[in-house]
Write a protein that binds this DNA or RNA. Structure first.
Lengths: 229, 229
DNA sequence: TCAAAAGTGTTGCGGCTACACCCATGA
DNA sequence: TCATGGGTGTAGCCGCAACACTTTTGA
């Protein structure tokens, strides 16, 4: 048993707010990088599974129980010597997708927490190598929407096809043809299941009320829904 | 700085031999699992980068310098408590693709090494959780061939289009239409560059001599070459 | 009655599969 | 000259993008 190292988990926690993809960042309360923004994370316990540690950190920082509506998956491991000034730290990064969140709660050792739209992440001047981890996580999310049904984890049930389309538009930063999008979604068995009901009245500018749906059992998309070139 | 753990790298080292995808396994010389087959790997040094540790282990076990013709990328990290009976060990797995290899050299702490075709991996009864790691690595390789030019790292230069096709057929375990395959490869700019020469005489059963090519500068495939359903 | 948004229909383009056919080579 | 395999041509199918059109709703 050779040299041992500290192992942490860091989470790229994503949601859709105000029509664009946003990540949860926390303001560090302790050195190093005190006062700077960073991805939520922490050390893995001696007998704790990596996935469990990621879920625990997620719950501590946001109050979200990932088992009830959400998605958590391993992203990549970052272990370059010198990435943490305290010593050798290997970080296993995770990506989490959650529906519209309650206001984030400040964690135990964080001085604050807020969502940052992904197109303003450079302003956050992230600590450690978290800018790179965040960029890798965002790209993973964008790619996953193409060939999985994960977009549905960003919306509350019941939802309409246009609600789902706005998720794709927010995450990819593009606008999609409503007609062709609906055909693709409805043409994939098990992606969404119609409830039979229509959305209640209350749309701001008028328009036909869309049909409502719930998440279906399918996880993969055949054929995929590809990003426009 | 909380609890520390041992960190290892394990390699899913793949090549194409006798028309099928094969992985390098080593026979363990020490406990635990002495005498059992396992993925090559070892502990990460205190000041060593993860990628560098993977390349070093690869060189020690096979004599291959990954910088000269080969591909190495991180696969995933496995850290479930109890996966190693010696204690808490977190393993960062890598996937490596190499051209036809010289006979593998027995490593310092391995009692033997040989290639196993992927369809006989169950017979190897791999140590630790290496069966799962190997399966994840094989699936990664199969998926990568669809949308990257990595298949060309399995062949020696110069190579013919049919050589490249046999790589796809070996990795995916299918047979492909030679005509359509050649069109897809030649229709992707930068995948292969023709040398102008033709293959030398010496084919066993006759037939026209195919044109020779080298690897091109492209890394991604647009459009992808998809596996048959 | 008008604007806005959901949903349906339709048409044209492009890629892909399957297969026929021609060319080069060794036995 | 025959079998084998590389390479080219072509016709049909399928999916998708684009966009016109109908329907439903709020103002």
């Amino acid at each position: 048993m050779r040299a041992t190292m500290a192992v942490t988990v860091d989470g790229v926690l994503a949601t859709v707010r105000d029509g664009c993809l946003a990540l949860l960042l926390v303001r560090r309360g302790t050195e190093p990088f005190a006062g700077r923004w960073a991805l939520p994370g922490g050390f893995v316990g001696p007998g704790e599974d990596l996935d469990a540690a990621a879920a625990r950190e997620l719950a501590e920082e946001t109050g979200i129980d990932i088992a009830t509506g959400g998605h958590l998956e391993q992203l990549r491991t970052y272990g370059t010597p010198g990435r943490d000034p305290r010593g050798r730290v290997v970080s296993v990064a995770y990506v989490a997708l959650v529906p519209r969140l309650p206001a984030p709660v400040s964690g135990t050792d964080a001085a604050g927490a807020r969502f940052w739209p992904v197109d303003r992440l450079v302003e956050a001047r992230l600590a450690f190598d978290h800018a790179r981890i965040a960029a890798d996580g965002v790209e993973r999310i964008r790619a996953k929407l193409e060939y999985t049904t994960l977009a549905a984890t960003f919306v509350d049930e019941p939802f309409s096809i246009p609600d789902l389309r706005r998720v794709y538009e927010a995450v990819w930063g593009v606008s999609l043809d409503p007609a062709n999008f609906a055909r693709k979604v409805l043409g994939t068995p098990g992606f969404v299941v119609p409830t039979g009901a229509r959305a209640p009245a209350g749309a701001p500018g008028g328009g036909r009320r869309p049909g409502l749906h719930r998440r279906g059992p399918a996880a993969a998309l055949h054929p995929p829904i590809l990003r426009p070139a």
